[in-house]
Amino acid sequence: MENVVALEQIVNKLPGVKGAKILANEGGELKEIHILADIKKPAKQLVRDIETAIYAASGIKIDRKIVSVAQISDDEQETAETGTYEESLVDASARFNLISVETKSSSKRLTVSVNIDDDGKQLSGSSVVDINDDEKYMAAVEATVAAIRESLPSFRVEFIERLKYGLNDVILVVCSAIISGERRKEAGARLFKKDSFNDIVLVILETLNKM
């Protein structure tokens, strides 16, 4: 939609915003706004800036609840560019942690299997895609969702997209699950490094652990 593209361009010019994705329904009503930003400004202030910019540019008043903000630090960006990024796959304070991501390929298919630790219980899921699929990373998404649903049946990945951030790719994700009787949404972002399948699974788990 031409109007949506124009609004994305405006939001992308706001200080601190590294990427924006706006989704609208067939009638042109804005339904979801997903933002990748740095951490220099509080998320609430950023949402207010987005609300003001969209209203000033189009006269459209948005509900702040449709805006999801994922923030990433510039320190992580700089470290990733120098190739010295290091991290542990296990966070002792988190409920869900990645154990392993396994891949098997043939002439036509790629199978991605994900194993996750849920407070001592192992969860497993897998997905199969065409070996020539340009978006093979979606198999890691599907395998991760399948694994998590063993423990949390209401879990969903609502939105996922790769964005450019400086010289690197970033994955932006919005997840949801029913927590304490209501569906909650949380956004997260992560830099792609050598193993993109690992990064896909990790950004989903990090986002889920924030709920």
Results as ranks from 00 to 15, higher is better:
75 D>I: 12
75 D>E: 14
76 E>P: 06
77 Q>P: 01
77 Q>C: 13
77 Q>H: 10
77 Q>W: 06
77 Q>I: 14
78 E>M: 13
78 E>F: 12
78 E>L: 14
79 T>P: 00
79 T>I: 12
79 T>F: 02
79 T>L: 14
79 T>Y: 07
80 A>W: 06
80 A>M: 09
81 E>I: 10
81 E>A: 11
81 E>G: 06
81 E>F: 10
81 E>P: 03
81 E>H: 10
82 T>M: 08
83 G>Q: 07
83 G>T: 08
83 G>M: 08
84 T>W: 08
84 T>L: 14
85 Y>W: 05
85 Y>V: 02
85 Y>C: 07
85 Y>L: 09
86 E>R: 04
86 E>M: 05
86 E>I: 06
87 E>C: 10
87 E>G: 04
88 S>G: 08
88 S>A: 09
88 S>N: 12
89 L>Y: 00
89 L>D: 06
90 V>A: 10
90 V>M: 10
90 V>E: 05
90 V>G: 02
90 V>Y: 09
91 D>S: 10
92 A>T: 12
92 A>F: 11
92 A>N: 12
93 S>H: 08
93 S>R: 14
93 S>P: 06
94 A>M: 07
94 A>Y: 05
95 R>D: 11
96 F>L: 14
97 N>Q: 10
97 N>K: 06
97 N>P: 15
98 L>W: 02
98 L>Y: 00
98 L>I: 03
98 L>C: 01
99 I>K: 15
99 I>R: 14
100 S>D: 05
100 S>M: 05
100 S>Q: 04
100 S>P: 06
101 V>F: 04
101 V>K: 00
101 V>Y: 00
102 E>H: 02
102 E>W: 05
102 E>C: 04
103 T>D: 03
103 T>Y: 04
104 K>H: 02
104 K>Y: 00
104 K>Q: 05
104 K>T: 04
105 S>M: 06
105 S>P: 06
105 S>W: 03
106 S>R: 03
106 S>Q: 01
107 S>R: 07
107 S>A: 02
107 S>D: 03
107 S>Y: 12
108 K>I: 02
108 K>D: 00
109 R>S: 00
109 R>M: 05
110 L>I: 05
110 L>Y: 00
110 L>C: 03
110 L>A: 01
111 T>C: 05
111 T>I: 08
111 T>N: 03
111 T>Q: 01
111 T>K: 10
112 V>R: 01
113 S>E: 07
113 S>N: 05
113 S>A: 09
113 S>Q: 12
113 S>W: 02
114 V>Q: 03
114 V>L: 01
115 N>S: 15
115 N>I: 05
116 I>Y: 07
116 I>P: 15
117 D>Y: 03
117 D>F: 00
117 D>C: 08
118 D>G: 11
118 D>F: 14
118 D>N: 15
119 D>Q: 15
119 D>I: 13
119 D>R: 10
119 D>G: 12
121 K>F: 12
121 K>R: 13
121 K>D: 13
122 Q>A: 14
122 Q>S: 15
122 Q>N: 15
123 L>C: 15
123 L>H: 15
123 L>N: 10
123 L>D: 12
124 S>M: 13
124 S>F: 08
125 G>C: 11
125 G>I: 10
126 S>L: 13
126 S>E: 11
126 S>C: 11
127 S>H: 13
127 S>G: 10
128 V>Y: 04
128 V>N: 03
128 V>D: 01
129 V>C: 02
130 D>M: 08
